Each structure stands twice: as C-alpha cells, then as structure tokens.
Simulated scan of single mutants.
Amino acid sequence: MHSTLVLFDIDGTLLTSRGLSRRVFKEIMLRRFPHFENGFDLRYSGMTDPQIVETILEMNHFPVEERAAQTESILTEFVDALCSEIYNGAVPALLPGVKQLVDHCVQTEHCYLGLVTGNMMQSAQAKLRAVDLYEAFPLGAFGNDSKHRTDLPPLAIARAQKYYRRKFETDHIWVIGDSIHDVRCAHAAGIHSLAVASGVTNMDDLQKENPDFAAENLEDYQTIVKWLGIKK
C-alpha cells in the first residue's frame, strides 16, 4: 500500500479568520507609517506573510535598503499581535467539511498530513490550536521558510519524509488550497492539487490553473477522499 501525503493550506481552506490578519497588518502599518495609502486592499490569498509586508512597503515607496530589516520587525510585531487577538477571543472558524476530512485522514492508515501555508509558523499554530486541529498537523512549511510559495512544498515534503520516516512518491502527494498560488506551487513541485473555492478566489479562476480536482469546499469529504485515493 502506498503512502499518501496531504499538504493543506490554512486560511480559506481549513478555516476563516474573518479578516483578522488583514486588520492586524493594517493597524501595525498605519501605526508605524501613518502616511501609507497603498496596498491595504491587496488580495492576500496565497501570499506569504513576508511577501505581503514587502509588497505594501514597495507600493508605498519605502527605501529598498531598509525593507528587509523593517519586514522582520513588522512580522515579529504582527505575530505577537495576531496570537494575542486569538488567545483573547478572536477565534477562527472551521470551514465546511474540514473536521470530517481531517479526522478521516488521521484515522486512515498510510495517510499523513502536513501544511503548506504563507502564515508565519507561530501564527499558523495559534490558528490551529484555536480550532482544535493543532495535533493533526505535526509539520509543514511556512512563511518563515521563504517568501516564495513555490519554495514551500519541497520543504514540507522533506520534513514529512524525515518526521514520518518514509518516502512519499510525487504521484501520491497533494496540496489542498483555495488560491491560484496553491495550485501553482503544486505544479512547480510536480505534485497533485485540489483547489477549493472556499476562500476569495472563485471556481472559474481556480480551474484556469488546471488543478487535478476542484470543489466549492470540503463539505463532500467522502468524494474528496476518493479523489485523493485515501481508503480506510
């Protein structure tokens, strides 16, 4: 029996934070730079947290030579503020079908889970703890690792092979995500993708990226596990 590795995105795929990240980013940016006017209407979906910060700085003509240090400082403040908000009651909400799909995967022999997310690792952990999914995802690749999403699947796969002590063949590795960037990073890694229109990207735009499968959400988890080739 082959081993299947399923790598999930977080925001818009597993859960919704109801705009929390956007609000916290904006508050931090405007507190530091009250004159900033550009970038606050960016579509964050599929972007890594470092990429979001760097893009906003660039759009507001922040000096190039100071961007790296400023990005690091902003991200540190952002993670602290976001985690504080979550711990104080701004709890994310699971999206339809997520609990059933994750439970099915966890309970299925030869199925293994991980993350591929643009979140900083600490932010990802806080969100997953808040919705009782933390234990299901012992590893992943995060915004801390690279600002380029295409770098993340190979890192997650390498960590999964080390953690689970087994080799995963590319034909049995999946990325599940709600953005075109999730599909593109799967293509770049030579692995499969399942696109879900449970975030801000509509089904037509997702299907233009040619995922292996596409669904409105994860609610019909029984069909999805068949697509993934997962059998109990």
Score class of each variant (00 low, 15 high):
A188D: 10
D171R: 15
D145M: 07
N217S: 11
E209P: 12
E27N: 06
L14F: 10
G118D: 02
N88C: 12
R149D: 06
K167I: 15
K226F: 02
E216R: 04
L5E: 11
R149K: 10
D145F: 07
H2Y: 13
F142T: 01
L82N: 04
I230Y: 09
T117S: 12
E72W: 10
V98H: 02
E219A: 00
A124Q: 07
A195H: 11
Q107P: 01
V79A: 15
G97H: 07
L155N: 00
R159Q: 05
L115R: 02
F40N: 09
A214E: 02
A195Q: 05
T71C: 13
M203L: 15
V79E: 10
F8Q: 01
G140I: 05
A126Y: 03
Y87T: 14
V225M: 03
L95A: 08
K99S: 07
G39Q: 04
D220P: 00
P92K: 06
E85H: 14
E66K: 15
D171I: 11
K226M: 04
G190N: 09
D41P: 08
K127L: 03
V175L: 13
L152Q: 00
S21T: 13
R184Q: 15
P138Y: 03
Y164D: 15
P211E: 05
L115D: 03
T71S: 13
L133A: 07
G118T: 06
H61V: 00
R43Q: 14
P211C: 05
D49G: 08
F62D: 02
L14P: 04
K99R: 14
Y163M: 12
N144L: 02
V91G: 01
A189Q: 02
L30R: 08
E27C: 01
N38D: 10
E27W: 00
F40I: 08
W174T: 13
N60I: 04
V64K: 14
L194H: 10
A186I: 05
F213K: 05
L128I: 03
A68I: 09
Q122R: 13
A158K: 09
L206I: 10
N38F: 11
G39Y: 06
A69T: 06
R32K: 14
Q51S: 14
D132C: 14
M47R: 14
E54C: 04
R184T: 12
C83F: 02
K231I: 13
